[in-house]
């Protein structure tokens, strides 16, 4: 070993590849959730490393809230096409038309409803395993979730009744109708993601890098102006140099002020930042201390 340099990124990468191959080998009908965000782009590269020179033994799936940044959707489509992999997109609008999602205000954040369309998509295709790019460092509830997270027929997570996960031996068995969520990058941090993006020279949506954008200030947050978010009377539109640390629902994803224009500069900013990724950018997680835990119990990722 001493002659061979094996960095922490190599260790994380090898672990993730190993997890993806276990899913491919043991699950009957897996899928990889792919949104065009940075974590799922890392997942895509890991899948290439795991399965090339063959095609992926699973499709890519995106649950579209129709509240996404257009740059992210464009990246999603471009990367799936470049790789020649199958992309399945299901939209919250479909569930709204079916009447399975009833929303009061179409412009309000839609993350809470994503679970419904996800579960409907799982049922439509009969997926028994969905791989997602969630990380344990993102949020307290995620920190306690297994890499192979078993869900019942309703897609629900029971934090007190998780399967013990020992060594690198994963229990992938489910009964018909049940499924597992698999998180191959559980052990990666935000910093690891950026270091990997830099190392692998991954193409990510431009909005992750600093750019001029019209924003308004609400409370402690800076909110991007879009067709969904317009200034209220008395609110001032400012143009700031910002970048997004996460790219979710446009109505509740806040950018941070930044001049970092490439992955290396973001690594430098990330190493000195004093605010967590979600704390800085996800207004919906701040509703209560248990927001994510409650969403997960309902079938969310």
């Amino acid at each position: 070993m001493s002659k061979h340099t094996f960095t922490h990124l190599d260790a994380l990468e090898s672990e993730s590849i190993h997890i993806m191959r276990e899913v491919a080998a043991e699950c009957k009908n897996p899928a990889l959730l792919f949104s065009g965000g940075k974590d799922s782009i890392v997942m895509l590269r890991l899948a290439e490393k795991a399965f090339r020179p063959a095609k992926f033994p699973f499709p890519l799936v995106h649950i579209d809230t129709e509240h996404n940044f257009p740059e992210v959707i464009a990246t999603r489509d471009k990367l799936a096409a470049d790789l020649g992999e199958r992309l399945i997109v299901r939209s919250l609008e479909d569930s709204i038309k079916r009447g399975t999602i009833v929303i009061k205000d179409p412009d309000k954040p839609r993350n809470p409803y994503q679970s419904v369309t996800l579960l409907e998509t799982i049922a439509e295709f009969g997926f028994d395993a969905c791989m997602g790019g969630a990380r344990r460092d993102e949020e307290k509830a995620r920190a306690k979730e297994r890499i192979f997270s078993f869900r019942d027929e309703f897609g629900q997570w029971d934090p007190k009744n998780q399967r013990p996960e020992l060594w690198d031996i994963y229990n992938t068995r489910v009964h018909a109708g049940e499924n597992i969520r698999v998180f191959p990058i559980s052990n990666w941090t935000e910093m690891d993601i950026w270091e990997y993006i830099a190392r692998e020279k991954l193409y990510i949506p431009e909005i992750y890098y600093a750019h001029k954008r019209e924003v308004i200030r609400r409370g402690n947050s800076v909110i991007p102006v879009s067709h969904l978010v317009q200034p209220k009377p008395g609110e001032k539109v400012e143009v700031l140099s910002v970048r997004f640390r996460t790219v979710g629902d446009m109505t509740c994803t806040a950018p941070v002020e930044s001049t970092a224009s490439n992955a290396q500069e973001i690594i430098e900013e990330t190493s000195t930042t004093r605010i967590t990724e979600r704390g800085a950018t996800r207004m919906d997680d701040q509703t209560s201390e248990a927001s994510m835990e409650l969403r997960k119990k309902e079938g969310y990722f």
Partner: peptide, 10 residues
């Protein structure tokens, strides 16, 4: 504390 939780630092 009811279960194993994972923390990360560098």
């Amino acid at each position: 504390t009811i279960d194993v939780a994972y923390r990360y630092f560098a």
